[in-house]
Design a protein around this nucleic acid. Structure first.
Length: 501
RNA sequence: GGGCCGGUAGCUCAGUAGGUAGAGCAUGUGCCUUUUAAGCACAGGGUCGCGGGUUCGAGUCCCGCCCGGCUCACCA
């Protein structure tokens, strides 16, 4: 018999023994007086005499260590990633509870009632007087001091990762604080949270390939959204002048340490401002998010100290000159010269060539939080032109740690110009560009009713979380990242064969 | 998709030159009423990712495939 079969059989037999003692193997409600973190926070620094008179507690948690010593034993209970030791003595808990104690496995969930004390070595512990059984583990826990290290198992069985690696819990708590901080700040500025369609008959607002699904009753194909942008701007037309949405976008593209097919985006739109207003607001938002998520505005990421207290600012052309490394650094006049640009890139237009040079020469070097502004019109079909410089639009992106984390612009609100931009995109689509935007006629109609001048911005929550938690891979900040499905799981077959025995 | 690296006990990992597969933790039995990587004694546990091939003999060499990681390309 394999170890796994044997273990499973042992555990099922043990359930029967536990039930024979009169406990339920999968117990019910347990009213605790304290969580383990509360006990550690409240009594963690108290000396033995300060724990008198007796502090009585009831706690629940998962058993993570177990040390039997004849007629007594020690164990650690884990709750919310923190551990508290319990001391179980036969004379103190009685015969029945002590029999239960001897049947416990690492990973079982139990309730303990008793009083706090300090052991001979000084560790705050519960002197147990009653045990309750709450849930059985049938499988063995990962090893006690290495934890669970296999990356694939960590992603596939995140529950196990969270049990075995407490720091993983911290990453996702920080993620939650980041989102809460953004919501709080936006609400404080009068933004209203809205929800717009995830299933869209036309996909737009970004350049990406979509996932396709189907609605049976209407018998139509729908696309999972690649961005909420065009719906949010319809709301601006409708007079919801400050709106935001934090939710998933779906892009049917490759996976990497910086890309997951579904990812979380904050988008917000503010009427009567422009991209300059948004740069200032972004600086404020990011500094405050960093403070609320990490406690300060300086964050270490891959050995660099990132300072979120302010945003560095360069136009795209300035950035190409400033960050160019090695031979051939251009002058400001050269990066403004379409002929020079086309000579230094294979891209067909000056604007695309500038973007190409920026991506090759600059992007990876933008380590400190930095705004890059003034983008070529060719790559920005929804942004408003710069007055007096129609080759550029009022757009900026935010970079940190060499990654794009935000994208914003003054919204194009001229329906005639928007129609022309869509037609330009259709031309690119006909030439085989699967990611060119589709014509959204209703969006043009909405603009035709008049959209106030508006600034809009998107911030990638996953990447921002990576930076603020020091995570190298986007999979470390997404609880269940997309993986190829695994095959049949032996456990289920084994449970079938052992059922009823 | 290309390149590189990895998959050995439940977990973390060794495996020398091709010669019948190891350790620690975990598990089982016994002892142990303040231990904490508890300790002591004994024991069980492996389709070496899958399939082919070479060989008297393959965890080890060769080919194909599966899964994963990093990286490049792609993703403005």
């Amino acid at each position: 018999m394999s170890l796994e079969d044997e273990l499973l059989k042992q555990r099922l037999e043990r359930i029967a023994e536990i039930e024979a003692l009169g406990y339920r193997a999968y117990g019910s409600r347990y009213d605790f007086t304290h969580t383990i973190p509360e006990i550690l926070a409240g009594y963690g620094t108290k000396g033995a005499e300060e724990l008198l008179p007796e502090v009585r507690v009831r706690v629940a948690g998962r058993l993570m260590t177990l040390r039997h010593m004849g007629k007594a034993g020690f164990a650690h209970l884990q709750q919310s990633g923190e551990r508290l030791q319990i001391y179980v003595k036969r004379d103190a808990v009685g015969e029945r509870d002590f029999k239960l104690f001897k049947l416990l496995d690492i990973g079982d969930i139990v309730g303990v009632e008793g009083y706090l004390f300090r052991t001979r070595t000084g560790e705050l512990s519960i002197h147990a007087e009653r045990l309750e059984f709450l849930s059985k583990t049938l499988l063995s826990m990962p090893e006690k001091w290495h934890g669970l290290e296999d990356v694939e198992t960590r992603y596939r069985q995140r529950y196990l990762d969270l049990i075995a690696n407490p720091e993983v819990r911290g990453v996702f708590l920080t993620r939650a604080r980041i989102i809460a901080s953004l919501r709080r700040q936006l609400e404080a500025h009068g933004f209203v949270e809205v929800e717009t369609p995830m299933m869209q008959p036309l996909y737009g607002g970004a350049a990406a390939r979509p996932f396709i699904t189907h609605h049976n009753t209407l018998d139509i194909d729908l696309y999972l959204r690649i961005a909420p942008e065009l719906y949010l701007k319809r709301l601006i037309v409708g007079g919801l002048e400050r709106v935001y949405e934090i939710n998933r976008n779906f892009r049917n593209e490759g996976l990497s340490t910086h890309h997951n097919p579904e990812f979380t985006m904050l988008e917000f739109y503010q009427a009567y401002t422009d991209y300059r207003g948004l740069i200032d607001f972004s600086a404020e938002l990011l500094a405050q998010v960093a403070r609320e998520a990490t406690g300060g505005t300086t964050v270490e990421y891959e050995g660099c100290q990132l300072d979120f207290s302010h945003l560095e600012r360069y136009s795209m052309r300035e950035a190409v000159v400033h960050f160019w490394e090695g031979e051939g650094r251009p002058t400001p006049e050269e990066v403004a010269d379409p002929a020079w640009l086309r000579r230094h890139s294979s891209k067909p237009t000056a604007g695309e060539a500038l973007t190409d040079l920026f991506e090759r020469q600059v992007e990876a070097r933008l380590i400190q939080p930095t705004v890059i502004y003034d983008y070529p019109v060719e790559t920005s079909p929804l942004s408003k032109n710069k007055p007096g410089d129609p080759a550029f639009v009022e757009r900026f992106e935010i970079y940190a740690a060499g990654m794009e984390i935000g994208n914003a612009y003054t919204e194009l609100n001229d329906p005639q110009e928007q129609r022309r931009r869509f037609e330009m995109q259709l031309g690119m689509r006909e030439r085989g560009d699967l990611e060119a935007h589709q014509m959204d006629q209703d969006y043009v109609r909405a603009l035709a009713y008049g959209m106030p001048p508006t600034g809009g911005e998107g911030i990638g929550i996953d990447r921002l979380t990576m930076i603020l938690t020091g995570s190298r891979s986007i999979r470390d900040v997404i609880l269940f990242p997309l993986l190829r499905p695994e095959g049949a799981i032996d456990l289920v077959t084994q449970l079938q064969s052992l059922d009823g025995k």
